[in-house]
């Protein structure tokens, strides 16, 4: 269970560094974010929700059934698009309207 931060996409704004409830995300010497201990990630996705550069990807560890898919979230107003890209390149999108409550 962890996240990957794509260095090339990171603009060094620090939103994820502030968001992580475990203080796990730090700046590297170039001012870009990296996760210091990937194995300590809770998987809360706070960092992804705060990142405006769409630089953070979420994955399941191999020990919890992961198959190498990466998930990211793109935010547009109250709409969140959760995009899952499988290891084979196929993508799947789930749209969540944050103004709507869960039905369950």
């Amino acid at each position: 269970m962890s996240i990957r931060i794509e260095r090339e996409r990171c603009v060094g704004c620090g939103a994820c560094v502030e968001a992580c409830p475990g203080n796990l995300i730090k700046f590297d010497p170039d001012g870009r974010a990296f996760i210091r201990r990937p194995e300590d990630c809770w998987g809360c996705a706070s960092c992804m929700k705060e990142c405006r550069s769409e630089a953070i990807f979420y994955y399941l560890g191999a020990d919890v059934g992961g198959r190498g898919a990466l998930m990211q979230v793109k935010r547009d107003g109250a709409i969140s698009r959760w995009i899952i890209r499988g290891y084979d390149g196929a993508t799947f999108t789930i749209v969540v309207d944050r103004k709507q409550a869960n039905k369950y």
Binding site: M1, S2, P21, G22, N23, P38, E39, D40, C41, W42, G43, L60, G61, A62, D63, V64
Partner: peptide, 11 residues
């Protein structure tokens, strides 16, 4: 690896 994939907040 997923030691913090737990129910309660690991922090």
């Amino acid at each position: 690896f997923s030691r913090h994939k737990m129910w309660y907040c690991p922090f």
